[in-house]
Design a protein around this nucleic acid. Structure first.
Lengths: 150, 150
DNA sequence: CTACGAGCTGGACTCGACTCCAGGTCAAGT
DNA sequence: ACTTGACCTGGAGTCGAGTCCAGCTCGTAG
């Protein structure tokens, strides 16, 4: 069997994943670890490499905005094993498209803000060049974002 | 003056911005409206077009992850008027790069998930083609995400 | 032996961003 | 005169995702 015989303490897992110890316990309670965390004789958690791998996956999902209940669902399917692959794939695909949509929206925001930045730059360049902007002139700076066309 | 003489009720602003009435009041309390909302004789809020414009900007900032305190700060600068343009520009530029970073991270996630999707697709394609995958074979599906290289 | 550091548990707390509610006001319609 | 519907206020509640804490247990090092 694949026995990369190296048990990990929760502290080690924390430093290796970047998650806090509290978060690791929290995730376990939330049931988003595919297979259970063993305990040693003293009742302490004993992790293995595959936990790290799984946690990395979870971090990717979380980091891309998947809520914990959804991750739990995915995890449950993974735990159930054979026969759930289709549904797992569907979940990932859906999440993929949500991320894509998110990225799209962020790009829109970026464009708008980029426009606004341009307005400010122009304004500052001009006022710097001595061209005093007379009061009352609509610079588009005060209030409106005045988007390009959307 | 630019007097698009059309007063708006909070309800109209809500439908036009897509924000809820509660959220509009909340935003006002939070001080993220550049200029004050007038009240009519009955104490009701009277908005104008520029409020809509400003709210659109706020929605862009919120939607791209700027927290309310930061928006408040930006708003305060805008309210202060002349002389704060440089700082406002700086804020927008910083936010721009945070969005860019965010997009970058999302792309990474997308890649990893795309990889995982590929793994599942291959697996399903094979098992569909009758190639029964024998138990114990490491498909990379159960637990690991097994990223391409990173 | 005892002090220390790392873990354990259950439960409370925080934070951000809303969202909801009770109880009240007002203007217009029937 | 009354009912509606839209709005008002102050304050409480919710939700998601952690984060923190008190009080306890180990195993080891001095």
């Amino acid at each position: 069997m694949t026995d990369t015989h190296e048990d990990l303490t929760i502290g080690q897992v924390a430093t290796r994943t970047g998650l806090s110890i509290d978060t690791l316990r929290f995730y376990e309670r939330e049931g988003i670890l595919a297979n259970p965390v063993r305990r040693n004789s003293a009742g302490r958690r004993v992790y293995a490499e595959h936990h790290i791998a799984w946690l990395n996956m979870c971090m990717i999902l979380r980091g891309s905005g998947m809520p914990i209940p959804a991750i739990r669902h995915y995890t449950e399917l993974a735990r159930a094993g054979e026969g759930t692959e289709r549904e797992r794939l569907a979940i990932l695909r859906e999440h993929q498209s949500r991320i894509a949509a998110r990225i799209g929206r962020l790009h829109e925001c970026l464009d708008l803000i980029g426009y606004k930045v341009g307005v400010y730059e122009d304004y500052l360049a001009e006022s710097e060049a001595g061209t005093e902007i007379e009061a009352g002139t609509e610079t588009g700076i005060g209030i409106e974002p005045a988007p390009p066309t959307p």
